[in-house]
Every structure is written in C-alpha cells, then in structure tokens.
Amino acid sequence: MKFRAVLHDQQLMREFLNAVLTLSKLTKECVMNISADKLIFIINEESSSSAPLVWAEIKSNIYFDTYTMEGVDAEHANIYLAFNPANLARSLAVISRGSVTYVKIKLTNKQFPCLTVDIQLPSANNVQNRQIVHDVPVDMIPRRDWGAYKMPHVPESQIVLTMPSLRFLRNLIDKIKNLSPSITFYANTNGELSIVAETDQATVASHYRNLEVKKVHYDENSENCGNRANTEKGMEVACLVDCKKTAVFLSALQINNLVMSCGIVQDHLIQMELEIRLGMVLHCIIPAVCV
C-alpha cells in the first residue's frame, strides 16, 4: 500500500487545514478513504453521539499537485485509515502562521502505520529552509470492515436552496437550541425558507425570503408527500430535525463566507453542502426525528 500527496499552493493548504479543523471539532476519530481519484474524510455518526454524519470529498487530480496511491490490490484499490483529526490539524497548524513551500502527506510504517506530514518553510535567504515532520499514528482498517465506511446512499433532495449567511444561521440555531430540542426546516419553490421551533413556552419562527432555488426534483412516484406534494403553485417540503446536531455542525465549520446549500427530503433528512472550491466539497446529513 502506498499513498503520497503534495500541495504547493498556499490557498489550497489553508483550505485543507480548515477542512481538517472542521472535522476535528466534530469528532475524535475520523476515517480517511483513499482511492485513485478521491480522498474522502468520513465521520461516522456512531463514532460520537452528537455529531451528524459528515464527510468531505477532495478530488485528487484537481486539488493535489502530486498524488500517488496504490491500494491493497487491483480489485480493492482503496486504503482505509482511522485517526484523530485533531492530531492531523495540529501537525498542519503551521500553515496558518506563515508561508510554506510545500506540504507532503505520506503513508509510512514506523513500527506502526503513520501519516507523515512533511512541511517545508522557506527562510529569508532560501538557504536554511526548515523542515517540519510530524507522524500522525493511524489505524489501518482491515478489508472486512470496509463496508461500514461505504458512502451513504443519499436520496435526491426535493428542493435545494442556497442558504442565508452562515454566521446568521449559526446564531439563530444556537439560540433556538436553548429553547427547543428539535426544529423544522420548511422550504418551497418560491425561495422561502422557514426555520420553526415550537415548545410549550414559546413558538419561534424565522422566515427567509428570496433565496435562490438551486434545484427542484419532482418525485412522481412518491405518495408520502401527501397534501404538500407537487401542486401547480410549486412544491414545498419540510423536515423535523434534531436542533443540537444542526448546531454542532454549524458551529464546527471553520470556513466562513462561503455559500452553503441546503437540500430537504420530505420527512427524511436535510443535507447541507459546502463547496469550498471546485474539487473540495463538505457534506452533512442530518436525519429527521420523530415526535
């Protein structure tokens, strides 16, 4: 098994660090799935009780300058590793502090398997360059357990909206979290989004208007949409989710000023998607709760 990835661009490095930081805020153990064309970080829902299902997908050919990998064999061309994202974030932290010549990430075997992070810092005269090497211990996941880390099957969202500013939404959900354990997301094809919480003490409803509707998916076979189904006026969907989970995801995000889209599948789940740049996407699925 082999894995080696190199980054030269400062901006990309910083984004990579931010993605890892976001993961480290959500969980103590995340799984990295290395395949020929993609690098996927997965946080399994069961690994920590409050975190939602989150995964980050990085397209190797677009993102990395050099990317080589060799799987177990031709048939199973993947590598699955488990590690603590906080360790990786700490080894990458130097990126945020100044200019870096390159970042190399390698899979090595030093008595036990490690992800070796090799960072070079330039010096003023370009002679005494500094080299920082960190070894992040990882656990190899045996092939029989791979099935547990398969990409989740995501049903197509009936409506996908561009979300209002992230800072705003984070605050809103953070406050509602103290009032109510669950919230309802409601969206329609007119670009209206309502976030509603109801308790015996208070009813709080936030209404956004004029949001961009990114996608509408008419599901003709579906009957469970009931009276809220495809009407001539347009379509609307709603989903009740756990407030804490949503808040955990939003407050973990280390990436600001980015456009987030939110897809809703009627009574099933909401999925949030952050496209950090072409080739790097962060997904989050928050399942519906029953009342």
Binding site: P164, S165, S206
Partner: peptide, 21 residues
C-alpha cells in the same frame, strides 16, 4: 402570548416571529 417580531435590515431578507407564553 406576547408576540415579538424581529426584523433584520440587511442583505438577508429575514423576519423572526416569536410568540411567548
């Protein structure tokens, strides 16, 4: 209930309605 209607004037067009027992 006491109804509070909060309106933010900015880039996002948003109204929050709170109804408190």
């Amino acid at each position: 209930p006491l109804v509070l209607v909060l309106e933010h004037h900015g880039e996002d067009d948003v109204v929050t309605e709170c109804s408190i027992k």
